[in-house]
């Protein structure tokens, strides 16, 4: 593989991998692994589960590589879709699971005081707890739209629903999140001013 591996498309890297290029897997893992892991963490709420989902989704990517037809779809979209389905399967198997608030990292910000960082950590915990209260599909749509910043058509492709359905899910999800957090405004340090 050339020195410009980082500029190579996911499509091309997957074909290179299927053709025996050993470096392609490392580049794809560095590029796609964090995205899948981030989504899985938010959707599953449990670090160990998110790790399992990420590894399984990537394994399916490796196994699918020889059949990949470049240009027909985006590798990342395919991978998100696999990861979301794995999350749903695991949630179904483990109804009533707990929320591992420590699983969600606090945004690093060295410019903030310890108190501010604690407060931001509490807010992120509250966000994750509120996310976990949403119905599964709403949570997926909100995470993909507002945390992964994917477009509505792309989310529609991942979730296999219409763009209108994505808009509806994200709108309802946001309202539910705002309502869940509204009761904790004072606790989370939001002023009324």
């Amino acid at each position: 593989m050339s020195a410009t591996a980082e500029e190579t498309s996911d499509d091309a890297l997957l074909v290179l991998y299927a053709n025996g290029d050993s470096r392609a897997a490392a580049v794809l893992t560095a590029r796609l692994g964090p995205r899948v892991f981030g989504v899985a963490m938010r959707v599953m709420g449990i670090r160990a589960e998110a790790e399992d989902v990420t590894q399984e989704a990537m394994l399916r990517l490796w196994k699918m590589a020889p059949e990949w037809r470049p240009g027909e779809a985006q590798v990342s979209t395919w991978l998100y879709r696999v990861a979301m389905n794995l999350c749903i399967d695991r949630k179904r198997r483990a109804r009533g699971g707990y929320v591992d608030l420590d699983a969600v990292p606090e945004p690093p910000d060295p410019g903030r005081s310890a108190a501010e960082q604690l407060q931001e950590g509490a807010r992120q915990d509250a966000l994750q707890a509120a996310l976990m209260q949403l119905p599964e599909r709403q949570r997926q749509a909100v995470v993909l739209r507002h945390l992964e910043e994917l477009s509505n058509p792309e989310i529609a492709g991942i979730m296999d629903i219409s763009t209108e359905a994505v808009e509806s899910l994200t709108a309802r999800g946001k309202r539910a999140l705002a309502a869940a957090l509204a009761g904790r405004r004072e606790e989370l340090g939001y002023s009324d001013g």
């Binding site: 991998y17 897997a25 490392a26 893992t29 692994g33 964090p34 892991f37 981030g38 963490m41 938010r42 790790e51 990420t54 590894q55 990537m58 394994l59 490796w62 969600v104 990292p105 606090e106 945004p107 690093p108 931001e120 807010r123 992120q124 966000l127 507002h146 945390l147 910043e149």
Partner: peptide, 23 residues
């Protein structure tokens, strides 16, 4: 949301190694 986006979790080293071992 903005704060959460800026704090995307890093993939743990052992998970990276497991993914590459699978590959």
């Amino acid at each position: 949301f903005a704060a959460a986006r800026s704090g995307r979790p890093a993939v743990p080293e052992h998970l990276n190694a497991a993914i590459l071992a699978d590959a």
